[in-house]
Design a protein around this nucleic acid. Structure first.
Length: 569
RNA sequence: GCCCUUGUAGUUCAAUGGAUAGAACGAGGCUCUUCUAAGGCCUUGAUGUAGGUUCGAUUCCUACCAAGGGCACCA
């Protein structure tokens, strides 16, 4: 449609004899200004030496001579040209949504592209905290949006199975043997290991003797020569990894690849050694990369310590090579982390682009903001981080409380509560642009009013109830006999595919989240002002078709945010 | 000190260089004998400061101010 309007304007300009300059066709922010608008008169006015308003008027007159049936009217206002689409156009767009169903909203922006997305990255032996929840929500949504744009996406998770944090956890487990109990659920055992880690981390800072022992355990872990440590390591690793899987299941993520730091360490070290003298140089006994030599905005970082151990930077080199080994034709490798890692990822990327120039444009680092807390410094109090699991449980319990007056089996109740809870959390993360920090407010993240995940789900279930009633009363959807007035809901629904494309192009899920709130609001308003299923209403069939269209778009949109759409709640 | 990110209603967020800067929460009022009131309707308020580019700047540029992150052997 956009192209069609553009061509109409081009023809009109030619007929008037005004030279064409670059102009745009866009959806105006406010529906009052039409369905499409163009700035053509303003950008061309200067060359044509006419007042923009006059030029807009002239173009309008020319356009009016030959309007296609999809356009109801053209208006010249404040120098803009506003196009109003016709009833026929909207009826057809509703028909299109119903025909495409699940496929509606897909685009071919990335057709045939192979993309790997790495996200979440929790560390075994450490708690899965809400920061991981945030990366997971962002990563899963971006993965789905890319898939919806035609890409073949592989999901990857990179986990720190070696390092000081493991030694701290193991020290904590030795320190308090109760925490080693193998009784109870996986979640319970993993929780104990998390507590052991917190304890170890605290003692490492405050207790000299503990610090020494933890460093000792760390060395033994590296060479793997202590049976007692190896045994507890294996148990702890298995338990925490399994606990992570349970969380992924609730969150709706399934990874295709798992990369472990212990494996990347030696691979990365090899890469650094192979390029020593060329890319890397020695400095104070360590092997470093002086990125500032290549770009003054970057800085020097250590890749291999003076102790001879590879750092995270070196491991990242190994990781990137491994990722491209899974598929040498991969078009893009995306890594999603918090923005505190931005600067050194740039250094790593610089080193990589020198070693592997062919990969330079095939790597992308997307950063999201940090989780901050409102009303309390939870993060600064050691061992008092909000774990993903506790948050999920709290939210689920709140939902259950709210559901007491509904008639569901306990099984149904459990599932719905989980889906609604995850929606509340994910939406509170994804509703805003991912770059900025998120001020995490527990009360708000589980709020079910207004601008929230459950609000979207609730609108969807309402639509479902309407459709069930329509089936019972045997009224079928139809697009032919539509009311003359074009509803706001229709004007929002047909924009969905463009919103998805923009989200994919910018790697920003919040455009979808915001659009879903708009259509939910429009639907709820429509629902409140109309009896949709009614034998006495000649437009009932059209309204039912519209309700179907809404439910498809809402379900598809929620799915792109990684949120389930329950039929009832 | 240097580099990166961010400054928009009381609060949390929107706004591909365009029209009267949008929502939500909060506060106040109305609204269920109708398809789920987790809803709808109405009222209330903002672009950090100073310049610049432009027909037009929340958006781009410069300086300043403020917040957060990073800057050699942690990740």
């Amino acid at each position: 449609m956009k192209e069609k309007i553009k061509n109409l304007i081009k023809d009109a300009l030619e007929k008037i004899g005004v030279e064409e300059t670059d102009f745009i066709i866009e959806h105006p922010d406010d529906l009052k200004n039409g369905d499409f608008s163009s700035n053509v008169a303003m950008v061309c006015a200067k060359n044509a030496k006419i007042n923009p308003k006059e030029l807009a008027e002239k173009i309008k007159i020319e356009l009016d001579k030959n309007l296609p049936e999809e356009i109801a009217k053209v208006e010249a206002a404040a120098g803009f040209l506003n196009f109003y689409l016709s009833r026929k156009y909207f009826s057809k767009s509703i028909e299109e949504i119903l025909n495409k169903g699940k496929e509606y909203g897909k685009n071919e922006l990335l057709l045939g592209k192979k993309i790997m997305v790495e996200y979440t990255d929790p560390n075994p032996f450490k708690p899965f905290h809400i920061g991981h929840l945030m990366t997971n929500a962002v990563g899963e949504s971006i993965a789905r949006i890319l898939e919806h744009s035609g890409a073949e996406v592989a999901r990857a998770n990179y986990q720190g199975d070696v390092g000081l944090h493991v030694a701290k956890a193991i020290y904590g487990l030795f320190d308090n043997e109760k925490l080693q109990s193998k009784a109870g659920s996986i979640a319970l055992q993993a929780g104990n290991i998390g507590r052991a880690y917190s304890r170890g981390a605290e003692l490492y800072e405050t207790d000299e003797k503990a610090k020494k022992e933890i460093d000792e355990i760390n060395k033994k872990l590296y060479v793997r020569n202590d049976d007692k440590i190896n045994e507890i390591y294996k148990w702890g690793f298995d338990v925490t990894m399994e606990a992570f899987e349970d969380i992924y299941k609730i969150l709706g993520t399934k990874f295709d690849f798992y990369f472990l730091e212990s494996v990347m360490a030696s691979l990365g070290e090899e890469v650094v050694r192979a390029n020593a003298g060329k890319v890397f140089e020695e400095s104070d006994g360590a092997v470093v990369f002086k990125a500032d030599k290549h770009d003054p905005k970057l800085h020097t970082r250590v890749f291999i310590t003076s102790q001879g151990l590879p750092t995270y930077e070196a491991k990242e080199l190994g990781l990137t090579e491994e990722k491209f080994k899974t598929d040498p034709d991969m078009d893009l490798s995306i890594t999603i982390t918090a923005n505190e890692q931005m600067d050194y990822m740039r250094v790593v990327a610089k080193a990589l682009s020198i070693i592997h120039p062919e990969l330079e444009n095939r790597m992308k680092h997307i950063t999201h903001g940090m989780m901050r807390f409102v009303g309390g410094k939870m993060s600064s109090r050691k061992g008092n981080v909000v774990t993903g699991e506790s948050l999920l449980n709290d939210v689920r319990d709140m939902v259950l409380e709210k559901m007491t007056d509904r008639n569901f089996s306990s099984e149904e109740q459990e599932q719905i509560a989980n889906e609604v809870g995850v929606a509340a959390i994910k939406y509170s993360i994804l509703k805003q642009s991912i770059g900025g920090d998120i001020i995490y407010d527990f009360e708000k993240s589980i709020s079910f009013d207004g601008d929230s995940g459950p609000y979207l789900q609730y609108s969807y279930t309402r639509a479902n109830s309407v459709l069930e009633k329509a089936q019972k009363e045997n009224i079928l959807p139809d697009f032919e006999n539509a009311p003359e007035e074009i509803l706001e809901l229709e004007k929002l629904l047909y924009k969905f595919p463009r919103i998805v494309a923009r989200s994919a192009f910018e790697y920003e899920p919040h455009y979808i989240a915001n659009h879903l709130v708009e259509i939910a609001r429009a639907f709820n308003s429509f629902y409140g002002n109309n009896l949709i299923v009614s034998k006495d209403d000649q437009y009932s069939s059209y309204k039912i078709a519209l309700t179907y269209a809404f439910s498809f778009v809402m379900k598809n949109g929620l799915s792109l945010l990684g949120i389930e759409a329950p039929r009832k709640m």
